[in-house]
Design a protein around this nucleic acid. Structure first.
Lengths: 252, 252
DNA sequence: CGGTAAGTTGACACTAATCAACTTTCGTGG
DNA sequence: CCACGAAAGTTGATTAGTGTCAACTTACCG
Protein backbone atom coordinates (compact mmCIF):
# COMPACT_ATOMS: atom_id res chain seq x y z
CA UNK A 1 0.00 0.00 0.00
CA UNK A 2 1.47 3.36 -1.02
CA UNK A 3 2.29 5.89 1.65
CA UNK A 4 0.27 9.08 2.02
CA UNK A 5 3.11 11.03 0.41
CA UNK A 6 3.27 8.75 -2.61
CA UNK A 7 -0.49 8.95 -3.04
CA UNK A 8 -0.29 12.71 -2.99
CA UNK A 9 2.62 12.92 -5.42
CA UNK A 10 0.87 10.56 -7.81
CA UNK A 11 -2.11 12.87 -7.82
CA UNK A 12 0.23 15.18 -9.77
CA UNK A 13 2.47 12.88 -11.80
CA UNK A 14 2.70 9.10 -12.16
CA UNK A 15 5.88 7.73 -10.59
CA UNK A 16 8.01 4.74 -11.51
CA UNK A 17 8.61 1.91 -9.05
CA UNK A 18 12.18 3.10 -8.59
CA UNK A 19 10.96 6.55 -7.66
CA UNK A 20 8.40 5.19 -5.25
CA UNK A 21 11.11 3.13 -3.59
CA UNK A 22 13.24 6.24 -3.26
CA UNK A 23 10.38 7.98 -1.48
CA UNK A 24 9.62 4.99 0.74
CA UNK A 25 13.26 4.82 1.80
CA UNK A 26 12.97 8.36 3.03
CA UNK A 27 9.92 7.61 5.13
CA UNK A 28 11.73 5.46 7.68
CA UNK A 29 12.83 6.64 11.12
CA UNK A 30 9.40 7.86 12.04
CA UNK A 31 9.25 9.80 15.26
CA UNK A 32 6.15 10.26 17.40
CA UNK A 33 5.43 13.75 18.68
CA UNK A 34 2.90 14.77 21.32
CA UNK A 35 0.03 17.16 20.48
CA UNK A 36 0.65 20.90 20.65
CA UNK A 37 4.42 20.56 20.42
CA UNK A 38 6.61 22.80 18.27
CA UNK A 39 8.42 20.91 15.53
CA UNK A 40 10.20 24.04 14.36
CA UNK A 41 10.23 27.36 16.20
CA UNK A 42 10.53 30.85 14.76
CA UNK A 43 14.22 31.75 14.74
CA UNK A 44 15.44 28.18 14.20
CA UNK A 45 17.78 27.34 11.32
CA UNK A 46 16.56 23.89 10.35
CA UNK A 47 18.85 21.60 8.39
CA UNK A 48 16.23 19.01 7.47
CA UNK A 49 12.92 18.90 5.71
CA UNK A 50 10.00 17.75 7.80
CA UNK A 51 7.40 15.27 6.58
CA UNK A 52 4.11 14.55 8.36
CA UNK A 53 3.31 10.85 8.25
CA UNK A 54 0.35 10.83 10.59
CA UNK A 55 -1.71 13.44 12.44
CA UNK A 56 -2.28 17.15 11.94
CA UNK A 57 0.28 19.93 12.26
CA UNK A 58 0.19 23.62 11.38
CA UNK A 59 2.28 26.62 10.49
CA UNK A 60 1.56 29.54 12.77
CA UNK A 61 2.74 32.89 13.97
CA UNK A 62 2.08 34.83 17.17
CA UNK A 63 1.72 38.57 16.63
CA UNK A 64 3.20 41.19 18.91
CA UNK A 65 -0.32 41.65 20.26
CA UNK A 66 -0.32 38.00 21.31
CA UNK A 67 -2.77 36.73 18.70
CA UNK A 68 -2.09 33.44 16.97
CA UNK A 69 -2.69 33.05 13.27
CA UNK A 70 -2.53 29.59 11.77
CA UNK A 71 -1.35 29.88 8.18
CA UNK A 72 -1.47 26.28 6.96
CA UNK A 73 -2.46 22.82 7.99
CA UNK A 74 0.02 20.02 7.40
CA UNK A 75 -1.75 16.70 6.94
CA UNK A 76 -0.26 13.26 6.30
CA UNK A 77 1.88 13.39 3.17
CA UNK A 78 2.65 17.10 3.55
CA UNK A 79 6.11 18.45 4.11
CA UNK A 80 7.47 21.84 5.00
CA UNK A 81 9.31 23.91 2.44
CA UNK A 82 11.75 21.95 0.26
CA UNK A 83 14.22 24.79 0.22
CA UNK A 84 13.84 25.60 3.86
CA UNK A 85 17.62 25.69 4.29
CA UNK A 86 18.15 28.55 1.83
CA UNK A 87 17.03 31.21 4.29
CA UNK A 88 19.01 31.69 7.45
CA UNK A 89 16.21 31.61 9.92
CA UNK A 90 12.58 30.53 10.20
CA UNK A 91 10.11 33.42 10.21
CA UNK A 92 7.31 31.29 11.67
CA UNK A 93 6.79 28.15 13.73
CA UNK A 94 5.43 24.72 12.93
CA UNK A 95 3.62 22.83 15.65
CA UNK A 96 1.65 19.63 15.98
CA UNK A 97 -2.08 19.97 16.56
CA UNK A 98 -2.80 16.31 17.33
CA UNK A 99 -0.30 13.59 18.14
CA UNK A 100 1.82 13.13 15.02
CA UNK A 101 4.26 10.79 13.39
CA UNK A 102 6.92 12.74 11.56
CA UNK A 103 10.13 12.11 9.64
CA UNK A 104 13.13 14.38 9.33
CA UNK A 105 14.44 14.10 5.78
CA UNK A 106 18.11 15.07 5.52
CA UNK A 107 18.93 17.76 3.01
CA UNK A 108 20.95 15.24 1.00
CA UNK A 109 18.00 12.94 0.52
CA UNK A 110 15.86 15.81 -0.68
CA UNK A 111 18.41 16.84 -3.28
CA UNK A 112 18.67 13.21 -4.32
CA UNK A 113 14.94 13.03 -4.93
CA UNK A 114 14.97 16.30 -6.84
CA UNK A 115 17.43 14.75 -9.30
CA UNK A 116 14.93 12.25 -10.67
CA UNK A 117 12.74 14.15 -13.14
CA UNK A 118 9.23 12.90 -12.43
CA UNK A 119 9.80 13.04 -8.70
CA UNK A 120 11.16 16.56 -8.98
CA UNK A 121 8.07 17.63 -10.89
CA UNK A 122 5.82 15.98 -8.32
CA UNK A 123 7.66 17.54 -5.37
CA UNK A 124 7.69 21.01 -6.92
CA UNK A 125 4.02 20.63 -7.78
CA UNK A 126 3.27 19.87 -4.16
CA UNK A 127 5.19 22.95 -3.12
CA UNK A 128 3.40 25.13 -5.65
CA UNK A 129 0.05 23.83 -4.48
CA UNK A 130 0.98 24.68 -0.89
CA UNK A 131 1.59 28.22 -2.04
CA UNK A 132 -1.63 28.31 -4.05
CA UNK A 133 -3.44 27.10 -0.95
CA UNK A 134 -1.96 29.91 1.05
CA UNK A 135 -3.23 32.38 -1.54
CA UNK A 136 -6.66 30.82 -1.40
CA UNK A 137 -6.68 31.17 2.38
CA UNK A 138 -5.95 34.86 1.97
CA UNK A 139 -8.91 35.15 -0.40
CA UNK A 140 -11.01 33.17 2.04
CA UNK A 141 -10.24 35.36 5.04
CA UNK A 142 -10.17 38.56 3.01
CA UNK A 143 -13.51 38.22 1.25
CA UNK A 144 -15.82 35.73 2.94
CA UNK A 145 -17.93 35.83 6.08
CA UNK A 146 -17.38 33.45 8.94
CA UNK A 147 -19.65 30.51 8.03
CA UNK A 148 -18.46 30.55 4.41
CA UNK A 149 -14.85 30.67 5.54
CA UNK A 150 -15.23 27.58 7.64
CA UNK A 151 -17.22 25.84 4.93
CA UNK A 152 -14.45 26.58 2.47
CA UNK A 153 -11.84 25.16 4.80
CA UNK A 154 -13.82 21.96 5.22
CA UNK A 155 -14.24 21.56 1.46
CA UNK A 156 -10.50 21.93 1.02
CA UNK A 157 -9.72 19.43 3.75
CA UNK A 158 -12.16 16.95 2.25
CA UNK A 159 -10.29 16.97 -1.05
CA UNK A 160 -6.80 17.05 0.42
CA UNK A 161 -7.51 14.21 2.80
CA UNK A 162 -9.34 12.31 0.09
CA UNK A 163 -6.20 12.32 -2.06
CA UNK A 164 -4.24 10.60 0.70
CA UNK A 165 -6.99 8.14 1.52
CA UNK A 166 -8.20 9.64 4.77
CA UNK A 167 -11.81 10.23 3.74
CA UNK A 168 -14.57 7.70 3.70
CA UNK A 169 -18.15 8.52 2.79
CA UNK A 170 -17.59 12.24 3.20
CA UNK A 171 -16.27 11.63 6.67
CA UNK A 172 -12.84 12.42 8.10
CA UNK A 173 -10.98 13.00 11.34
CA UNK A 174 -10.22 16.61 12.22
CA UNK A 175 -8.40 16.36 15.54
CA UNK A 176 -8.44 20.07 16.37
CA UNK A 177 -10.43 22.34 18.63
CA UNK A 178 -12.82 25.12 17.66
CA UNK A 179 -10.33 27.58 19.12
CA UNK A 180 -7.82 26.35 16.55
CA UNK A 181 -10.34 26.71 13.75
CA UNK A 182 -10.92 30.25 15.01
CA UNK A 183 -7.18 31.04 14.92
CA UNK A 184 -7.08 29.64 11.40
CA UNK A 185 -9.95 31.72 10.09
CA UNK A 186 -9.19 34.98 11.87
CA UNK A 187 -12.24 34.69 14.13
CA UNK A 188 -12.92 34.59 17.84
CA UNK A 189 -13.57 31.13 19.24
CA UNK A 190 -17.12 32.08 20.08
CA UNK A 191 -17.89 33.34 16.61
CA UNK A 192 -16.33 30.22 15.12
CA UNK A 193 -18.61 28.15 17.32
CA UNK A 194 -21.67 30.04 16.15
CA UNK A 195 -20.61 29.81 12.52
CA UNK A 196 -20.22 26.05 12.82
CA UNK A 197 -23.73 25.94 14.17
CA UNK A 198 -24.94 27.76 11.09
CA UNK A 199 -23.39 25.05 8.92
CA UNK A 200 -24.93 22.36 11.07
CA UNK A 201 -28.37 23.92 11.02
CA UNK A 202 -28.22 24.13 7.23
CA UNK A 203 -27.57 20.36 7.21
CA UNK A 204 -24.27 20.91 5.45
CA UNK A 205 -22.00 19.26 7.98
CA UNK A 206 -21.66 17.37 11.19
CA UNK A 207 -18.75 18.25 13.45
CA UNK A 208 -18.14 16.79 16.88
CA UNK A 209 -15.38 15.14 18.83
CA UNK A 210 -12.77 15.71 16.13
CA UNK A 211 -14.95 14.06 13.57
CA UNK A 212 -16.38 15.79 10.47
CA UNK A 213 -19.02 14.61 8.05
CA UNK A 214 -19.68 16.61 4.91
CA UNK A 215 -23.36 15.92 4.41
CA UNK A 216 -23.65 17.58 1.01
CA UNK A 217 -20.40 18.56 -0.64
CA UNK A 218 -22.03 20.18 -3.65
CA UNK A 219 -24.19 22.46 -1.54
CA UNK A 220 -21.38 23.22 0.89
CA UNK A 221 -19.06 24.15 -1.98
CA UNK A 222 -21.72 26.39 -3.53
CA UNK A 223 -22.43 27.96 -0.15
CA UNK A 224 -18.74 28.63 0.47
CA UNK A 225 -17.71 29.71 -3.03
CA UNK A 226 -15.29 26.79 -3.15
CA UNK A 227 -13.51 26.13 -6.44
CA UNK A 228 -10.92 23.34 -6.26
CA UNK A 229 -8.79 24.50 -9.18
CA UNK A 230 -6.05 25.82 -6.87
CA UNK A 231 -5.34 22.31 -5.63
CA UNK A 232 -4.27 21.34 -9.17
CA UNK A 233 -5.35 17.73 -8.81
CA UNK A 234 -4.67 15.72 -11.94
CA UNK A 235 -8.14 14.33 -11.98
CA UNK A 236 -9.88 17.70 -11.98
CA UNK A 237 -13.12 15.98 -12.95
CA UNK A 238 -13.07 13.99 -9.78
CA UNK A 239 -12.23 17.01 -7.73
CA UNK A 240 -14.78 19.23 -9.43
CA UNK A 241 -17.76 20.58 -7.61
CA UNK A 242 -20.64 18.24 -8.11
CA UNK A 243 -18.43 15.61 -9.60
CA UNK A 244 -18.06 13.85 -6.29
CA UNK A 245 -21.13 11.68 -5.98
CA UNK A 246 -22.50 12.06 -2.52
CA UNK A 247 -21.23 9.77 0.19
CA UNK A 248 -20.42 6.38 -1.27
CA UNK A 249 -18.24 7.41 -4.17
CA UNK A 250 -15.75 9.31 -2.08
CA UNK A 251 -14.68 6.20 -0.18
CA UNK A 252 -12.44 3.52 -1.62
CA UNK B 1 23.89 51.57 -12.01
CA UNK B 2 22.47 48.19 -11.03
CA UNK B 3 18.95 47.31 -12.05
CA UNK B 4 16.18 47.02 -9.46
CA UNK B 5 16.37 43.24 -9.72
CA UNK B 6 20.11 43.14 -9.12
CA UNK B 7 19.74 45.46 -6.14
CA UNK B 8 17.12 43.16 -4.71
CA UNK B 9 19.11 39.98 -5.29
CA UNK B 10 22.18 41.53 -3.74
CA UNK B 11 20.15 42.25 -0.63
CA UNK B 12 20.25 38.47 -0.18
CA UNK B 13 23.61 37.37 -1.61
CA UNK B 14 26.55 39.24 -3.16
CA UNK B 15 26.82 38.50 -6.89
CA UNK B 16 29.86 38.35 -9.16
CA UNK B 17 30.16 40.64 -12.17
CA UNK B 18 29.51 37.67 -14.45
CA UNK B 19 26.28 36.93 -12.63
CA UNK B 20 25.17 40.51 -12.77
CA UNK B 21 25.82 40.54 -16.50
CA UNK B 22 23.71 37.42 -16.87
CA UNK B 23 20.85 39.14 -15.09
CA UNK B 24 21.24 42.35 -17.08
CA UNK B 25 21.15 40.38 -20.32
CA UNK B 26 17.77 39.08 -19.30
CA UNK B 27 16.38 42.52 -18.67
CA UNK B 28 16.34 43.62 -22.30
CA UNK B 29 13.24 43.63 -24.49
CA UNK B 30 11.26 45.70 -22.07
CA UNK B 31 7.60 46.05 -22.96
CA UNK B 32 5.33 48.85 -21.76
CA UNK B 33 1.91 47.88 -20.48
CA UNK B 34 -1.03 50.18 -19.74
CA UNK B 35 -2.51 50.43 -16.22
CA UNK B 36 -5.14 47.89 -15.15
CA UNK B 37 -4.20 45.38 -17.82
CA UNK B 38 -3.92 41.65 -17.22
CA UNK B 39 -0.41 40.32 -17.75
CA UNK B 40 -1.50 36.74 -17.02
CA UNK B 41 -5.09 35.60 -16.65
CA UNK B 42 -6.45 32.74 -14.57
CA UNK B 43 -6.54 29.66 -16.77
CA UNK B 44 -3.50 30.65 -18.87
CA UNK B 45 -0.55 28.29 -19.24
CA UNK B 46 2.35 30.70 -19.31
CA UNK B 47 5.66 29.62 -20.81
CA UNK B 48 7.72 32.54 -19.57
CA UNK B 49 8.56 34.14 -16.28
CA UNK B 50 7.47 37.72 -15.88
CA UNK B 51 9.66 40.45 -14.42
CA UNK B 52 8.45 43.90 -13.40
CA UNK B 53 10.99 46.57 -14.34
CA UNK B 54 8.92 49.64 -13.59
CA UNK B 55 5.49 50.33 -12.07
CA UNK B 56 3.19 48.37 -9.79
CA UNK B 57 1.41 45.12 -10.60
CA UNK B 58 -0.55 42.67 -8.46
CA UNK B 59 -1.70 39.09 -8.16
CA UNK B 60 -5.43 38.87 -7.66
CA UNK B 61 -8.43 36.62 -7.75
CA UNK B 62 -12.13 37.34 -8.25
CA UNK B 63 -14.38 35.18 -6.09
CA UNK B 64 -17.59 33.61 -7.31
CA UNK B 65 -19.38 36.36 -5.38
CA UNK B 66 -17.58 38.93 -7.53
CA UNK B 67 -15.22 40.24 -4.88
CA UNK B 68 -11.63 40.94 -5.80
CA UNK B 69 -8.81 40.00 -3.44
CA UNK B 70 -5.33 41.25 -4.20
CA UNK B 71 -2.81 38.71 -2.88
CA UNK B 72 0.51 40.38 -3.66
CA UNK B 73 2.05 43.51 -5.03
CA UNK B 74 4.75 43.17 -7.64
CA UNK B 75 7.12 46.12 -7.54
CA UNK B 76 10.17 46.81 -9.71
CA UNK B 77 12.60 43.90 -9.40
CA UNK B 78 9.87 41.40 -8.58
CA UNK B 79 9.03 38.44 -10.76
CA UNK B 80 6.26 35.92 -10.77
CA UNK B 81 6.89 32.33 -9.74
CA UNK B 82 10.12 30.86 -11.09
CA UNK B 83 8.55 27.46 -11.60
CA UNK B 84 5.34 28.83 -13.01
CA UNK B 85 5.51 26.34 -15.90
CA UNK B 86 5.35 23.26 -13.67
CA UNK B 87 1.62 23.54 -13.11
CA UNK B 88 -0.67 23.23 -16.09
CA UNK B 89 -2.75 26.28 -15.53
CA UNK B 90 -2.72 29.54 -13.57
CA UNK B 91 -5.09 29.60 -10.60
CA UNK B 92 -5.03 33.39 -10.36
CA UNK B 93 -4.38 36.45 -12.49
CA UNK B 94 -1.65 39.06 -12.56
CA UNK B 95 -2.51 42.58 -13.61
CA UNK B 96 -0.81 45.93 -13.77
CA UNK B 97 -1.99 48.57 -11.33
CA UNK B 98 -0.09 51.52 -12.80
CA UNK B 99 1.56 51.72 -16.20
CA UNK B 100 4.39 49.18 -16.14
CA UNK B 101 7.51 48.15 -17.95
CA UNK B 102 7.84 44.37 -17.95
CA UNK B 103 10.10 41.70 -19.41
CA UNK B 104 9.17 38.17 -20.39
CA UNK B 105 12.06 35.91 -19.44
CA UNK B 106 12.09 32.70 -21.47
CA UNK B 107 12.11 29.48 -19.49
CA UNK B 108 15.58 28.68 -20.86
CA UNK B 109 17.09 31.85 -19.49
CA UNK B 110 15.64 31.16 -16.07
CA UNK B 111 17.12 27.67 -15.97
CA UNK B 112 20.41 29.17 -17.12
CA UNK B 113 20.45 31.59 -14.21
CA UNK B 114 19.52 28.85 -11.76
CA UNK B 115 22.68 27.00 -12.76
CA UNK B 116 25.02 29.59 -11.31
CA UNK B 117 25.14 28.94 -7.56
CA UNK B 118 24.99 32.39 -6.01
CA UNK B 119 22.36 33.51 -8.46
CA UNK B 120 20.30 30.42 -7.77
CA UNK B 121 20.47 31.13 -4.05
CA UNK B 122 19.46 34.73 -4.62
CA UNK B 123 16.57 33.84 -6.91
CA UNK B 124 15.26 31.13 -4.57
CA UNK B 125 15.62 33.52 -1.66
CA UNK B 126 13.48 36.04 -3.49
CA UNK B 127 10.87 33.36 -4.11
CA UNK B 128 10.91 32.26 -0.48
CA UNK B 129 10.50 35.84 0.65
CA UNK B 130 7.52 36.25 -1.65
CA UNK B 131 5.97 33.28 0.09
CA UNK B 132 6.86 34.59 3.53
CA UNK B 133 5.26 37.88 2.55
CA UNK B 134 2.10 36.08 1.57
CA UNK B 135 2.04 34.42 5.00
CA UNK B 136 2.53 37.77 6.67
CA UNK B 137 -0.40 39.20 4.70
CA UNK B 138 -2.54 36.37 6.00
CA UNK B 139 -1.50 37.24 9.55
CA UNK B 140 -2.15 40.89 8.82
CA UNK B 141 -5.68 40.36 7.52
CA UNK B 142 -6.45 37.60 10.00
CA UNK B 143 -5.44 39.34 13.20
CA UNK B 144 -5.25 43.12 12.80
CA UNK B 145 -7.82 45.85 12.57
CA UNK B 146 -8.15 48.06 9.56
CA UNK B 147 -5.79 50.97 10.41
CA UNK B 148 -3.08 48.59 11.62
CA UNK B 149 -3.42 46.48 8.49
CA UNK B 150 -2.84 49.45 6.24
CA UNK B 151 -0.01 50.68 8.42
CA UNK B 152 1.63 47.28 8.18
CA UNK B 153 1.33 47.30 4.40
CA UNK B 154 2.97 50.71 4.21
CA UNK B 155 5.85 49.60 6.46
CA UNK B 156 6.44 46.62 4.22
CA UNK B 157 6.35 48.70 1.06
CA UNK B 158 8.77 51.19 2.56
CA UNK B 159 11.36 48.46 3.11
CA UNK B 160 10.76 46.62 -0.15
CA UNK B 161 10.95 49.78 -2.19
CA UNK B 162 13.93 50.99 -0.21
CA UNK B 163 15.89 47.89 -1.21
CA UNK B 164 15.41 48.71 -4.88
CA UNK B 165 16.14 52.39 -4.45
CA UNK B 166 12.64 53.77 -4.78
CA UNK B 167 12.45 55.48 -1.40
CA UNK B 168 13.85 58.84 -0.50
CA UNK B 169 13.39 60.45 2.89
CA UNK B 170 10.61 58.07 3.87
CA UNK B 171 8.75 59.02 0.71
CA UNK B 172 7.68 56.80 -2.17
CA UNK B 173 5.26 56.56 -5.06
CA UNK B 174 2.24 54.32 -4.55
CA UNK B 175 0.33 54.63 -7.82
CA UNK B 176 -2.83 52.86 -6.68
CA UNK B 177 -6.29 53.90 -5.56
CA UNK B 178 -7.87 53.51 -2.14
CA UNK B 179 -10.26 50.96 -3.67
CA UNK B 180 -7.23 48.86 -4.53
CA UNK B 181 -5.85 49.19 -1.01
CA UNK B 182 -9.27 48.06 0.20
CA UNK B 183 -9.22 44.98 -2.05
CA UNK B 184 -5.75 44.22 -0.75
CA UNK B 185 -6.67 44.45 2.90
CA UNK B 186 -10.07 42.77 2.76
CA UNK B 187 -11.89 46.03 3.54
CA UNK B 188 -14.56 48.14 1.89
CA UNK B 189 -13.24 51.19 0.07
CA UNK B 190 -15.03 53.45 2.51
CA UNK B 191 -13.55 51.79 5.55
CA UNK B 192 -10.11 51.87 3.95
CA UNK B 193 -10.56 55.59 3.44
CA UNK B 194 -11.49 56.13 7.09
CA UNK B 195 -8.60 53.97 8.27
CA UNK B 196 -6.16 56.01 6.23
CA UNK B 197 -7.56 59.10 7.90
CA UNK B 198 -6.80 57.55 11.27
CA UNK B 199 -3.16 57.12 10.22
CA UNK B 200 -3.05 60.68 8.95
CA UNK B 201 -4.58 62.12 12.08
CA UNK B 202 -2.02 60.27 14.21
CA UNK B 203 0.68 62.00 12.14
CA UNK B 204 2.03 58.65 11.03
CA UNK B 205 1.72 59.12 7.29
CA UNK B 206 0.82 61.37 4.43
CA UNK B 207 -0.98 59.81 1.48
CA UNK B 208 -2.31 61.70 -1.50
CA UNK B 209 -2.16 61.57 -5.27
CA UNK B 210 -0.26 58.28 -5.35
CA UNK B 211 2.38 59.65 -3.06
CA UNK B 212 3.18 58.32 0.42
CA UNK B 213 5.32 59.80 3.16
CA UNK B 214 6.06 57.73 6.24
CA UNK B 215 6.36 60.47 8.84
CA UNK B 216 7.57 58.26 11.67
CA UNK B 217 8.52 54.73 10.71
CA UNK B 218 9.29 53.62 14.23
CA UNK B 219 5.92 54.69 15.54
CA UNK B 220 4.07 53.35 12.52
CA UNK B 221 5.79 49.98 12.90
CA UNK B 222 4.94 49.85 16.60
CA UNK B 223 1.37 50.88 15.89
CA UNK B 224 0.99 48.20 13.20
CA UNK B 225 2.87 45.37 14.91
CA UNK B 226 5.32 45.34 12.02
CA UNK B 227 8.36 43.07 12.33
CA UNK B 228 10.54 42.98 9.21
CA UNK B 229 12.09 39.57 9.85
CA UNK B 230 9.95 37.90 7.18
CA UNK B 231 11.61 39.98 4.48
CA UNK B 232 14.93 38.28 5.31
CA UNK B 233 17.03 41.27 4.33
CA UNK B 234 20.73 40.63 4.73
CA UNK B 235 21.22 43.82 6.61
CA UNK B 236 18.66 43.07 9.28
CA UNK B 237 20.06 45.86 11.41
CA UNK B 238 19.22 48.39 8.75
CA UNK B 239 15.77 46.90 8.30
CA UNK B 240 15.07 46.64 12.00
CA UNK B 241 12.40 48.70 13.65
CA UNK B 242 13.95 51.83 14.96
CA UNK B 243 17.17 51.22 13.11
CA UNK B 244 16.13 53.36 10.21
CA UNK B 245 16.95 56.90 11.25
CA UNK B 246 14.07 59.11 10.30
CA UNK B 247 14.02 60.66 6.88
CA UNK B 248 17.54 61.36 5.71
CA UNK B 249 19.13 58.01 6.35
CA UNK B 250 16.70 56.09 4.23
CA UNK B 251 17.69 57.90 1.06
CA UNK B 252 20.89 57.22 -0.84
C1' DC C 1 -13.88 73.27 -19.60
C1' DG C 2 -16.66 69.45 -18.76
C1' DG C 3 -17.08 64.70 -17.57
C1' DT C 4 -15.54 60.92 -14.99
C1' DA C 5 -12.92 58.65 -11.52
C1' DA C 6 -11.31 59.06 -6.92
C1' DG C 7 -11.86 60.51 -2.43
C1' DT C 8 -14.83 62.07 1.54
C1' DT C 9 -18.79 62.38 4.77
C1' DG C 10 -22.97 60.92 7.47
C1' DA C 11 -26.55 57.65 8.72
C1' DC C 12 -27.64 53.13 9.44
C1' DA C 13 -27.42 47.92 9.41
C1' DC C 14 -24.97 44.03 10.16
C1' DT C 15 -21.00 41.11 11.39
C1' DA C 16 -17.89 39.93 14.73
C1' DA C 17 -15.52 40.56 19.42
C1' DT C 18 -15.92 40.52 24.31
C1' DC C 19 -17.52 39.19 28.88
C1' DA C 20 -19.70 36.14 31.85
C1' DA C 21 -21.98 32.07 33.03
C1' DC C 22 -22.91 27.55 32.21
C1' DT C 23 -22.85 22.59 30.20
C1' DT C 24 -20.54 18.87 28.22
C1' DT C 25 -16.63 16.16 27.21
C1' DC C 26 -12.23 14.32 28.19
C1' DG C 27 -8.21 12.70 30.62
C1' DT C 28 -6.30 11.31 34.85
C1' DG C 29 -5.69 9.49 39.42
C1' DG C 30 -7.68 7.41 43.30
C1' DC D 1 -14.25 1.95 37.36
C1' DC D 2 -15.84 6.06 39.05
C1' DA D 3 -14.85 10.82 40.45
C1' DC D 4 -12.74 14.81 39.83
C1' DG D 5 -10.80 18.80 37.53
C1' DA D 6 -9.65 20.91 33.39
C1' DA D 7 -10.43 21.72 28.70
C1' DA D 8 -13.74 22.28 25.13
C1' DG D 9 -18.02 23.68 23.65
C1' DT D 10 -22.39 26.47 24.17
C1' DT D 11 -25.50 30.41 25.25
C1' DG D 12 -27.01 35.26 26.08
C1' DA D 13 -26.17 40.13 26.43
C1' DT D 14 -23.56 43.94 25.10
C1' DT D 15 -20.13 46.56 22.57
C1' DA D 16 -16.98 47.54 18.87
C1' DG D 17 -15.67 47.18 14.18
C1' DT D 18 -16.93 47.07 9.49
C1' DG D 19 -20.11 47.18 5.33
C1' DT D 20 -23.65 49.50 2.70
C1' DC D 21 -26.22 53.31 0.71
C1' DA D 22 -26.52 57.89 -0.74
C1' DA D 23 -24.88 62.35 -1.40
C1' DC D 24 -21.33 65.24 -2.14
C1' DT D 25 -16.49 67.27 -3.09
C1' DT D 26 -12.12 67.10 -5.19
C1' DA D 27 -8.80 65.66 -8.54
C1' DC D 28 -7.69 64.14 -13.03
C1' DC D 29 -7.83 63.84 -18.21
C1' DG D 30 -9.06 64.71 -22.81
Amino acid sequence: MPSRLIRKLEAFVPLTEAEKTLVSDVERNVRTVAPKTDLITEGDSPENVLLIVEGFACRYKITSEGQRQIMAYLVPGDFCDLHIFILKEMDHSISTLSACKVVEIPRKRVLEMLKTPALATALWSATLVDEATLREWLVNIGTREAPQRIGHLLCELLLRLHVVGLVSEGRFELPITQAEIADTMGLSAIHANRSIQVLREADLITLARGHVVILDFKRLAAFSGFNPNYLHLRNQAEAGIGAIPQNAAISF
